[in-house]
Design a protein around this nucleic acid. Structure first.
Lengths: 258, 258
DNA sequence: ACATACATCTCGCGA
DNA sequence: TCGCGAGGTGTATGT
């Protein structure tokens, strides 16, 4: 089969040849990399214009489209997976457009020169594993509640309350209710307000004393005073440390929980 | 000059040849695209592991690194611009590592097969123009305050108050103070609470009546009641409409403001 | 360097 | 489908 080849690369193809190659790729769900001179117009939630320049266009097998300049982490324009593509050869211009629904957004790429067009059938079935996420911190706290303080006992996890979900909910050694908001980064103003929101929500439904604890690797500078004024507490916890704790083979019983 | 060529492409290079090519690229600040079979290890704020699979690696001329699988909008691993790269040929493995400082993070890519390696000198000096940002909405309101309501007069822009910055601050036709929070998307609970925070901050420093107005294309479903209970108002404003308003050649005096 | 807020944020989860 | 919150968020803009 012609299309079973692992990859193909064409240097300085004509725009007609490129159009043919792209047409086949769209049918065969391959991944496409084009480098050339083109401009980009986007219209949707916002709109943008980028005049001609030499850039990289990637079309993935799931319909995701990325346009990258020679600098910067972020794509300058894009379309998410599931977008519908069309290719069209106009006079001296090769036009690729991608449409997304909900929200309706259109992306139009106009090439006047293609340096390289390459197509690939990429086999990639590996799992991606990330450690030290906020969820790892949740797990670590449930596994070893003393990370919070001696005598802390978790009651529920991701408890639903009026304004949202409480990360961890429990009681301290004195029987006081404890609401915990966990952040994997240095916690700022928003985190404090989020915690305050949950604490007031619980308070409005109970007469018991409530402690609100912000758990994060650190808090930003001006926040300590805000914390005190809202009668909230801070406990330092490092996400990497939590991840290492979970890697230990002992106490795998936690798996049952998730 | 050997290195003055626009681009180069090699198919199925040996890992030694690839290492040579990459070494030159790092010196010449070109943009590099490699497609091959590799694994990725990351360690920094978090850590991750991705076993061998066929993927795309891009190294930009500013040191940004992107690793893309054949699906999804986001890179599975990356390093931001300014990262320091090293390339090393081990037995049957080509290793590219990238280090970032502050935070210190390391990325290690190990190739056992390269399908294609290509290098490019991309000329791209075009301006990227985006319309319908939140800032465009701010500008439109200052240009045409009646977008809020008849008789509204803006006083200040991005006014600093205790908990942060007020987007737009002014007085209505009755002389009441008006605090405006602008969102370019459908506004949710967080936007309402943010506005409430500013209003209470202003109230605590003045005895005058304060109106808090949330300006956005729409508000999420359950929010109307919350708004009323906090005595706040909502005014619909579409970011695209604001952008079109700014495109009109008339009233360019606003430029002076920014 | 640190803190704050925006983003065409994207993505996943739950109702 | 909508709403909400996490993210190795990144990026710009202050201080």
């Amino acid at each position: 089969m012609i299309n079973s080849e692992k990859f193909s690369v064409a240097k300085n193809p004509t725009l007609e040849d490129a159009a043919t190659i792209i047409g086949k790729v769209l049918v065969n769900k391959k991944t496409l990399i084009i480098v050339g001179n083109f401009r980009v117009k986007y219209d949707g939630r916002a709109s943008s214009n980028l005049e001609y320049g030499e850039r990289i266009l990637i079309v993935k097998s799931d319909g995701a489209i990325l346009i990258h300049r020679s600098f910067g982490y972020e794509p300058v324009n894009w379309q998410p997976p599931g977008s519908i593509l069309h290719v069209q050869k106009k006079s001296n211009i090769l036009e690729i457009s991608a449409i997304r629904r909900n929200p309706r957004e259109t992306l139009k790429v106009s090439f006047d020169k293609i340096f390289m067009i390459s197509t690939f059938s990429l086999d990639d079935f590996a799992d991606f594993n990330l450690f030290a996420s906020e969820k790892d911190m949740h797990k670590a706290i449930l596994l070893k509640p003393s990370l919070i303080e001696q005598g802390f006992k978790p009651i529920s996890y991701e408890k639903k309350v009026d304004p949202g979900f409480i990360d961890v909910y429990g009681v301290d050694k004195n029987g006081k209710l404890v609401v915990i908001e966990v952040k994997r980064r240095i916690a700022g103003k928003d985190a404090v307000l989020q915690l305050a929101k949950y604490v007031t929500a619980i308070k409005s439904k109970s007469d018991r004393d409530i402690r609100g604890i912000l758990v994060a690797p650190n808090i930003s500078k001006g926040i300590q005073t805000l914390l005190f004024s809202l009668d909230l507490e801070f406990i330092a916890l490092d996400p990497k440390k939590c991840a290492n704790l979970l890697k230990k083979p002992e106490d795998k019983k936690l798996e049952l929980f998730f």
